[in-house]
């Protein structure tokens, strides 16, 4: 079951194509990464999904239904450029935002109290946002995004400007929300931040999707059969086979590049035969950043 499904979405602004024939699905109860450099069209796409703007063509389905005016209540959106009313009290403000998402005043109060208690900030209810620190404001902002139990949570650069403690807090919260059945769509240009938490990703560049799929599968597809071996004592001697070559060797660490048919087990077996004392052995997988750069360069050629 897909919570979100995009089919051939196009958005053209006066002078450029912001979103160019984009299609992808977000599975229910998953963490999805929408990645790409600044200006790739991520925010334009998100504004279409959140019904802030409309697509010029293409179809969008939320929970199997074509996107309509009731859907914003099922989406929680934390924009990249975010803020709150500085002169309004935390409680009033959250209550207002929750009611705008369709919650009744009574339900909103119950849920907000629970969330504020969870984040240990219930005592802030009557404080004005302007009197809070930036990190405190971010907690309030996050609660405003998720208080109405949205099926789809869209976070645009969620960790920008967040301190490490709040980053971890929100990461934990995201895992828990996923466990409860929500899907989280991350949008960021900092790919290293999300590769550990995203299951599926879409890589965008200049409005187009250049890569789409499961993070592990993508990494496997782009692996270059590199293995790192750390050893102690005797170094492995040169082997006469063309199945692998030594790329670098220093400080008791050696990096091999193997041929596609030569598996990690083959390599291990070879090393054990040589009686090498292996301390650590791992495959070097490319980072999303590296894959992205490679992909963009390949597209440009």
């Amino acid at each position: 079951m897909n919570v979100l499904s995009l089919q051939n979405v196009v958005k053209v602004y006066a002078n450029h194509v912001a979103v160019d024939d984009v299609s992808f699905d977000v599975r229910a109860s998953s963490i999805f990464g929408l990645l790409g450099p600044n200006g790739a069209g991520k925010t334009s796409l998100i504004r279409i999904i959140t019904t802030i703007t409309a697509a010029d063509s293409g179809k969008i389905f939320l929970n199997g239904q074509p996107l309509n005016h009731l859907h914003p209540n099922e989406i929680g959106y934390m924009p990249e450029e975010r803020g709150l009313y500085k002169k309004m009290k935390v409680g009033e403000q959250l209550l207002y935002l929750a009611q705008l998402k369709g919650l009744s005043s009574k339900d909103a109060k119950i849920k907000l109290r629970a969330w504020l208690e969870k984040f240990e900030i219930l005592s802030w209810w009557d404080k004005k946002i302007g009197d809070l620190s930036k990190g405190m404001g971010q907690k309030v902002q996050f609660i405003a995004t998720i208080v109405h139990d949205p099926k789809l949570i869209i976070l645009d650069e969620p960790f920008s400007g967040l301190d490490p403690i709040n980053t971890n807090l929100i990461k934990d919260e995201i895992y828990q929300l996923k466990q409860k059945g929500a899907s989280i769509l991350f949008s960021t240009h900092r790919m290293e931040q999300v590769e550990e938490i995203c299951e599926d990703i879409v890589l965008m560049n200049k409005g187009k999707i250049i890569l789409n799929g499961n993070v592990q599968e993508i990494k496997n597809d782009f692996k270059e059969h590199l293995f790192s071996v750390k050893y102690s004592g005797k170094a492995p001697s040169e082997m006469g086979t063309s199945e692998y070559e030594t790329l670098s060797q220093n400080d008791n660490e050696i990096i091999f590049k193997t041929g596609p048919a030569f598996t990690s087990n083959d390599l291990l077996r070879e090393l054990l035969n040589q009686n090498v004392n292996i301390v650590r052995f791992n495959e070097i997988l490319p980072s999303l950043n590296e894959i992205f750069i490679k992909k963009v360069e390949a597209n440009n050629e």
């Binding site: 209540n73 959106y77 924009p79 450029e81 975010r82 803020g83 709150l84 009313y85 500085k86 705008l100």
Partner: peptide
């Protein structure tokens, strides 16, 4: 202007027209 400069406006219009 306050809502625009505060940057709360995008949160708001993701909830209403």
């Amino acid at each position: 202007m306050e809502e625009k400069i505060n940057r709360i406006v995008e949160v708001l219009i993701s909830s209403l027209k």
